[in-house]
């Protein structure tokens, strides 16, 4: 079991309120990702759930039980830190066995669980090494192993992949997703990378300055962003947001259109513009097009074969069914 509920939880450091009162429910077995720009309070929120920080107000409920006053070790949660926080003077085996040793399990049971975890994480050959002798990805796996053996009610990850290079990150992303499918344990995962959020989450919580902007599945967030912040944050490349006369035509303060929802043609279309920089990714090409609809260049996604030279004239056609409309406060209009 691992249902976590936050009731009016808030946190201040001295006079600075980092997290205003906030409600959130995380269901058992869910993979929830907290995503938001750096410094928005994701780590703080995770540490409040873990018990490493005391709440300034409100209650944290774990499986319906008030855990606000319970010490971290007794909450039944396991955390994987950004720096891995492995114990440098212990072997991998001892690192993974540490929580079991602290729980007073007998040696045979410890060995059994460590061996099991090592097999799952491909660490069997490295059990006698020190963390200092491992690569970044292996260290990451040891940190995960140390969390798994405790059989926690929920896993907490704080930007676990941010210290890895791009290739390893994609690999570890898959491994963590697979682990979740296999264990079916609640996981809360913090990241500032919306790609990680989109690819891994059952449910994404978008945060800004400690405030929840939207909660929903990756597709919900992509298709129906609740406000301009979420619209701009989720999706890569970013959604084009257009204000002014063009937006007024649609009875909105701001309209948004994703790069993949704009048609591009050299002969006819709604908006006329000139091609700026183009980015060729092979499968796709992104064109930055300056046009009369918006002072900022619009990003347009086209197939990889499309080639347009710098400065050439093009016509853009937004697909009306994918147009997002927002009011003056930035909230979505239906």
């Amino acid at each position: 079991m691992g249902q976590i509920q936050l009731n009016q939880v808030s946190k201040s450091f001295g006079p600075v309120e980092v997290i205003p009162p906030l409600d959130l429910t995380i269901e058992d077995g869910e993979f929830v990702v907290f995503v938001g720009p750096s410094g928005c309070g994701k780590s703080t929120l995770l540490r409040l759930i873990a018990g490493l920080e005391d709440v300034s107000g409100g209650h944290v409920l774990i499986d319906g039980r008030d855990a606000t006053e319970i010490v971290p070790a007794k909450r039944g949660l396991a955390m994987v830190f950004q720096s891995y926080a492995l114990y440098p003077h212990m072997s991998v085996r001892k690192n993974i066995a540490f929580p079991l040793r602290m729980a007073g399990l007998d040696k045979a049971e410890q060995d059994k669980r460590v061996t099991q975890a090592a097999e799952v994480l491909n660490l069997t050959d490295y059990l006698e090494r020190r963390p200092g002798q491992l690569s970044g990805g292996q260290r990451q796996r040891v940190a995960i192993g140390r969390a798994i053996v405790r059989e926690p009610a929920a896993f907490l990850f704080d930007e676990p992949l941010s210290n890895l290079d791009a290739a390893l990150r994609v690999g570890m992303r898959l491994e963590i997703s697979e682990l979740h499918k296999r264990l079916k344990t609640t996981m809360i995962y913090v990241t500032h990378d919306q790609v990680e959020a989109m690819t891994m989450a059952d449910k994404i919580v978008v945060l800004q300055a400690g405030v929840i902007e939207q909660v929903g599945s990756p597709l919900e967030l992509y298709q129906r962003p609740r406000n301009t912040f979420v619209a701009g944050f989720i999706g890569s490349p970013k959604m084009n947001l257009i204000r002014g006369a063009e937006a007024a035509k649609h009875d909105a303060d701001t309209i948004g259109i994703r790069p993949e929802h704009i048609g591009i043609s050299s002969t006819e279309g709604t908006w006329k513009g000139t091609v700026g920089v183009s980015e060729h990714l092979g499968s796709d090409t992104f064109f930055h097009v300056q046009c009369n609809a918006s002072p900022e260049p619009l990003t347009v996604r086209a197939t990889g074969e499309m080639a347009l030279s710098y400065g050439s004239e093009v016509y853009l056609t937004p697909r009306q069914e994918h147009l997002h409309r927002f009011d003056a406060k930035g909230l979505r209009l239906e």
Binding site: A50, L52, V71, P72, A73, L77, A78, M79, F81, Q82, S83, A85, L86, Y87, F98, P99, M102, A103, R146, R150
Partner: peptide, 11 residues
């Protein structure tokens, strides 16, 4: 973070 990890590990 090492101390916090140990704390979470029940030390």
């Amino acid at each position: 973070e090492q101390l916090e990890a140990a704390e979470m590990d029940g030390a």
